[in-house]
């Protein structure tokens, strides 16, 4: 059980760590001061969730690695995040559209995990539900304003959805690991909340006067370590300090 649970905790933690880092890249570059702070807040929420999840993963693995070792000393092939999290931050519309698609999914996932049989994971979920609810509200309201805004903001928001939609299928993929853990009450089965998520997305996309594109080929691979070219470069920047100065403190 423990190997499978470790693997699952890595998936949960890596989604948040990688997306949190992508979002943190906006710090100092936000379109307005207020939004700069808002994005940094959400990034910190996600990195905080990742910290708790990787701490838990490290204790489940029980192999002498701590959360920092998991975050800073794994290569891209060992990362288990969904591909949607690692895509470059793009323009503001792309960042908002991704945040909305991910957060709406993450909120449903956390709600399911709040009744997880593992007390630690259930506790992390109970706290994260509140944070995610705000992430959904913030990104949804922005997506509506961009989609139903000016010609340019509408076009950019639609481009973002057209690019991102093919990455959402991976969020609902399950393998034997997740199915068995879900059966044991330790994981959230995403098929149980797929239609609710789809309705959340449809409602906001309609309010935003946008449309979801047809998809011929769904992108996937992150859960087994097959990532886009972008993750390696992101990790190089994220990990440079602990890898250059092992054990550095301040």
């Amino acid at each position: 059980m423990s190997n499978r649970f470790f693997e699952y905790l890595l998936r949960l933690g890596d989604d948040r760590l990688v997306l949190g880092h992508r979002l943190s890249e906006w710090c100092g570059h936000g379109p307005i001061l207020e939004e700069d702070i808002a994005m940094a807040n959400i990034a910190l929420d996600l990195i905080g969730q990742a910290n708790l999840l990787l701490l838990k993963a490290a204790s489940v693995e029980n192999a002498g690695r701590d959360a920092d070792a998991l975050a800073y000393l794994r290569d891209a092939r060992e990362y288990r995040n969904a591909l949607i999290a690692e895509l470059p931050r793009g323009d503001f519309a792309f960042t908002i559209a991704r945040q909305f698609l991910f957060s709406a999914w993450a909120l449903r996932q956390w709600e399911a995990l709040a009744s997880c049989r593992d007390a630690d994971l259930a506790g992390i979920a109970a706290r994260a539900v509140k944070e995610s609810r705000y992430h959904v509200r913030h990104s949804a309201e922005w997506l509506v304003r961009l989609g139903d805004g000016t010609e340019e903001s509408h076009a950019r928001a639609q481009d973002a959805l057209d690019e991102l939609w093919r990455y959402t299928g991976e969020l609902f993929l399950t393998d034997a690991i997740e199915r068995e853990l879900a059966h044991e009450g330790l994981a959230a089965d995403p098929s149980a909340f797929r239609s609710a998520w789809q309705k959340d997305v449809d409602d906001v996309v309609a309010r935003a006067t946008l449309r979801l594109p047809a998809v011929e080929h769904w992108q996937q691979g992150g859960r087994t370590g097959l990532h886009t070219e972008h993750l390696g470069r992101m990790l190089a920047e994220m990990q440079v300090l602990p890898r250059t100065y092992p054990g550095a403190r301040w």
Binding site: E34, I37, R137, R145
Partner: peptide
């Protein structure tokens, strides 16, 4: 004070800037 496009975003910005 802060800048925002409308009331809902002003409320969210206020939460992030003054009540985080």
């Amino acid at each position: 004070s802060l800048h925002a496009a409308d009331g809902e975003l002003a409320l969210q910005n206020a939460r992030d800037v003054y009540a985080r």
